[in-house]
Structure formats: structure tokens, C-alpha cells
Amino acid sequence: MRFADIFSRKRSARTAQHRLQVLLMHERIAGSTADLIPILRDEILAVIGKYMTVDLDKVQVKVERGDVVSLLEIDIEIPALARFMLEQRTGPFYVSQTCPR
């Protein structure tokens, strides 16, 4: 066991309190926007759908809720043909920046 682990074990109540504060802050806000993420996903996909066909099975939505900022990550797998057609219309398409994995 590392020294830091021993420290965190002693402070587990503080960890619990912090986790609850972050979670409840998000849940209380979410009361009015419960299904915001599916709505966001659908609207983002609708915009992308104007330019190319997207397979809904190839879309991964991830969220990491933080105390200062949250991260919403939407991975959309774009078929090579659609990418080619998009590049014809808009110039180079920086796939590497939107799909790091």
C-alpha cells in the first residue's frame, strides 16, 4: 500500500462528502434537464446527418461530471466514404482531432 493510499483511507469521510457534493449538485440541476444528454445527442447527430449518414450504433456518448467542469464526449465513427464526400465539400477534415481513439 502506498503512503498516499493510507492518507486517503484515513480521510474516507472527506472523500465521501466531496463525492456527494459533486453528485447532488449535478442531480439537483438535472431535475429540470433530466434528459438533456439524449436531446443534445439527437440534435448534434441531426446536424451531422445533414452532411453524411451516421450509424447510430457507432456513436458513443460519455460524460465525466466534475466539480468545476464536466466533460461531454461524443465519439462518432464516420465511414470512410462519408468522410471522402465531406472532404469534397468542405476541404480537409480533421478526424484525428475529433476521434482521438
Partner: peptide, 11 residues
């Protein structure tokens, strides 16, 4: 919460 994944639930 018990699994420590509470910040990552989307669906």
C-alpha cells in the same frame, strides 16, 4: 455510487 461510477452515467 458504491461502484464509484456516479460521475459517468449517461444512459
Amino acid at each position: 455510487l458504491v461502484m464509484g461510477a456516479e460521475r459517468r452515467v449517461v444512459y
